[in-house]
């Protein structure tokens, strides 16, 4: 098992396990050691197509990235601006 920290942003905050009101707060998940990011979406009930950007420890990762103990994971929907 590995423990990771997760942050959700923008419209994904409605999938926060403690409810949208806690949306800005980080939370931890205990996962099997070979879990990838798309499996985390499923655990949280986030439809995969709603996630556009994954950052793990400040680096971009694709949905098939396998999480490591202590990873800080940030999930974003499509966002852009200027």
């Amino acid at each position: 098992m590995v423990k990771v920290e997760i942050l959700l942003f923008a419209t994904l905050r409605r999938y926060h396990p403690r409810g949208e009101g806690e949306g800005s707060q980080a939370f931890t998940l205990q996962l099997e050691s070979n879990t990838n990011l798309s499996q985390i979406y499923a655990v949280l009930g986030i439809p995969g197509e709603e996630v556009k950007m994954n950052f793990v420890n400040n680096r971009h990762q694709s949905p098939d990235y396998q999480v490591q103990a202590g990873d800080k994971i940030a999930l974003f929907p499509p966002i852009a601006g200027g």
């Binding site: 923008a10 940030a74 499509p78 966002i79 852009a80 601006g81």
Partner: peptide, 23 residues
């Protein structure tokens, strides 16, 4: 997803990028 009504630009404005660039 970015430009549509109810999309991120419309809902949060361009400042939704603060957390993205920070991450």
């Amino acid at each position: 997803g970015v430009t549509q009504p109810g999309g991120t630009l419309n809902t949060f404005g361009t400042a939704a990028l603060i957390n993205v660039l920070n991450q």
